[in-house]
Design a protein around this nucleic acid. Structure first.
Lengths: 397, 397
DNA sequence: CGGATAAGTTGTGCAGCGCAACAAACAATG
DNA sequence: CATTGTTTGTTGCGCTGCACAACTTATCCG
């Protein structure tokens, strides 16, 4: 039932072979933990050394890969290590969230080329104004690195995104918008703008550490978002959204949620709800973590309750979607160890397959505003996934 | 973030082109609602007419496709309709369930070539004995159609399947088995045996009506299984299982479930649980449906409770996985209309994206033991997905 | 210093597709 | 009933792109 070749969707011609193998070689180098030689790439991909040489030549000429100085390792001709080119192609990540707007320019090598950040309070804000600010930050960021060509822009938003439109962002009180259009009008140099859900793009950033991983990324913010990653790919529902973990019901008789239903996970384990229950409204998660150390009862109780609710929701998730690992990100990352016992207890009893595949729980890689980096990566994705198209664009200049 | 070409995984050589396009042409004909001509196939796939002709010739020679008599449609040379070949390749489906063991031989055209069924009571049964019975039924079925070459066998089981092993089937009380091995020893002529979860294979049968559909298939049995189908493909979790809808928690303080947790959906809406709550233990769903017509209070209350629970579980599912359609199958199919109001009420309030994409609810296509057909289709899948391999096997004879 | 070894390059052969021209089979028209 | 127009399917040719093998290059080692 599995393991068969990808379902063929469109005709493959001679040209498709090139596109496919070019992408294969590019990915192999871009995602390798250590810079591989041409011979390494040939061995890993199954392509002939001669073919790899030809393809690498194209990719180097197009500025996607670069060669290091040859290094000898034992006998034989020294290998020429290949690595992602730095500073030749970049993607711009933008993020609009409740408490800040930011821009980050990231190149193929994963280096942050430039960054701009504006803190603020954008709850119930005017979309055009904030999008204008984002466009401005993006423009500034691009201008600060004028010699780096940009493939496009990714925009992370805390809401429901579908077909490159924002359906709703409850915490911003934004609804039914076309932010990509607004951005492009304000700053055409941003190039094609791709929208993405904040949690999903944060998951994309998390992937940088292990490009072929499978996990559920849980992003704790005011709300609770999530994204499913399977073998290094974000799993998308039919409509483009999904993984709305925050609105899983954990308490049929619980509080009413902003979404209209009752007993949603967010009403128990969302940042604001949790801090309020702990008797620390307006505080930060870090402060809450401190209170736990001193052993304050109300804080403990609130965290325990949140952990149980999270555990139940995650168990439901794992039963339905079967992911091996759960990654806690953003504000939840700071509480991982406090939450662990409660979450693991629920996972242990409720996950049907726990005996054979106990879900692992871990903290996200430390990185401020991961969705910014994820958005930049999303903007670079077309280049990585289809280098041929980018190369012909480069040649056209 | 979406719509980019499939991630390249292995090297593509000239031969890969052929394999790809051969599969493309085969699929186009096999899944077409009406028999298409070569010219139709060329238009739909984007391949050149000449190429299609070459590929079709191979597929016809290999017994995968057959030509109808040419029919004139308006001006021009009459087109030669192409259709799946009947009786030249078949897959054998086996199913072991609580109340029967069955075998069904299905050819590429979807025709049932032969079938054998043995009713019984196999709860807490001896695996070797029942697998022997299944092997015997399979052998008989194959012998009754000796001139139809078989690609292999699919085996549907009501339990957790992973890497072609049965981890657990609580209702059979079978655990940690390798049924494929047992079958092949007992009847080598069954060929390669692929295991599959009952709900998942039933979903595969449901796909026959609309080969590119996306839906959640909910299979009501003693337990409640489910399978996610996205664009005509079964979505598999990382470990191979997932979609364990029956063990979603709907009532934190509810009954203890066989799985060890409390308040699972199965304990409210599973066939046995539902009938018991309705005051009809041991009856059939059809009888329950009748009682509803006469307006019996206890039956009504039980169904309403089940509908609400199902609605909550399905809402959770849709929020997490984002499927547009929910298909109720097996025993649940008979209650669809009785359950609809309760389910839709919950979906309406709990599904975050309901405003933009309200989930549809419908009954499965009428077909006895759909998992049998699905298992047969699963056995045929390798042929459909990689015709080249099958063709060279045919040529080798 | 020469042999062993591995990396990368060059030239040839072959598979497989698109393209264009062509043959086949029918309908419409006067 | 012959001619024209239209669509289907086939044939021959040329191009793309990969594998393969032989070769060159650059290093290590004895």
């Amino acid at each position: 039932m599995d393991g068969y070749p990808d379902r063929p969707r469109r005709a493959a011609r001679q040209e498709s072979l090139r596109e496919h193998n070019l992408a294969l070689v590019a990915r192999t180098v871009l995602l390798a933990p250590e810079p591989p030689s041409r011979a390494d790439v040939a061995a890993r991909t199954g392509l002939n050394r001669a073919t790899v040489s030809r393809l690498v030549a194209e990719l180097v000429a197009g500025g996607l890969l670069s060669e290091d100085d040859p290094v000898a390792a034992g006998a034989g001709r020294p290998a020429t290590p290949l690595r992602p080119a730095a500073g030749t192609v970049a993607g711009l990540g933008l993020e609009i969230n409740i408490d800040f707007v930011g821009a980050r320019l990231v190149d193929l090598a994963g280096r942050v080329v430039a960054e701009r950040m504006t803190p603020g309070h954008f709850r119930d804000s005017a979309p055009d104004e904030i999008l204008g600010l984002a466009a401005h930050l993006g423009r500034q960021t691009l201008e600060s690195a004028p010699d780096v060509p940009t493939a496009g822009t990714g925009l992370a938003l805390p809401g429901l995104v579908r077909e490159n439109r924002l359906l709703t962002a409850p915490n911003l009180d934004w609804h039914d918008l076309d932010p990509a259009d607004v951005l492009i009008r304000a700053a055409p140099e941003l190039g094609p703008v791709t929208l993405g859900n904040e949690a999903r793009l944060a998951a994309l950033a998390e992937l940088a550490t292990d490009p072929a991983a499978s996990f559920l990324y849980v992003s704790g913010e005011v709300g609770i978002g999530a994204a499913i990653v399977r073998d290094g790919e974000i799993v998308t529902g039919v409509h483009g959204f999904g993984a709305e973990l925050g609105h899983l019901m954990v308490d049929p008789g619980g509080h009413r949620c902003r979404c209209g239903a009752t007993g949603c996970l967010e009403t128990v384990a969302g940042t604001d709800a949790l801090l309020e229950a702990a008797g620390l409204p307006g505080a930060s998660m870090a402060e809450l973590a401190e209170r736990l150390v001193t052993g304050e009862a109300q804080a403990r109780a609130a965290v325990e309750r949140a952990a149980t609710a999270l555990g139940q929701a995650l168990a439901a998730f794992v039963n339905l979607v079967d992911v091996p690992t759960i990654v806690l990100g953003n504000t939840l990352a700071q509480l991982t160890e406090a939450l662990r016992p409660g979450i693991e207890a629920e996972l242990g009893t409720r996950v049907l397959a726990a005996r054979w595949a106990p879900p692992q729980l871990r903290t996200a890689a430390p990185l401020a505003h991961p969705a910014l980096t994820g958005a930049a990566r999303a903007a670079l994705a077309p280049v990585v996934d289809d280098p041929s198209a980018w190369l012909s664009r480069v040649r056209a200049d």
